[in-house]
């Protein structure tokens, strides 16, 4: 799968998820099954840099979701 196709799959998979808006990095490995963990990690981080995805961190763990999606994004942008 080339980079553009992998990005498309990731975005479409996330858009299709009901209920949850944030995912572990490992969940992204399953979305791009032919990519090595390190390649998928690099792609996900690139998509954050491009503003497609965003990180959410509890301090100990990091989750990743579509930018602006989810309760926290709304709450944090209230002001």
């Amino acid at each position: 799968m080339d980079e553009a196709a992998a990005k498309k799959v990731i975005v479409e998979t996330l858009q299709g998820k009901k209920g949850k808006s944030k995912f572990y990095l490992k969940d992204f490995y399953a979305m791009v099954p032919d990519g090595k963990p390190r390649e998928v990690k690099n792609l996900v981080n690139k998509m954050v840099e491009e503003g497609i995805l965003e990180y959410w961190s509890s301090g100990s763990t990091t989750l990743i979701g579509l930018k602006g999606v989810g309760k926290q994004a709304g709450a944090e942008h209230e002001d």
Partner: peptide, 12 residues
């Protein structure tokens, strides 16, 4: 618990 804030380019 937690948040989405950070500085540009950093995820930690």
């Amino acid at each position: 618990h937690g948040g989405i804030v950070g500085v540009f380019g950093y995820g930690g």
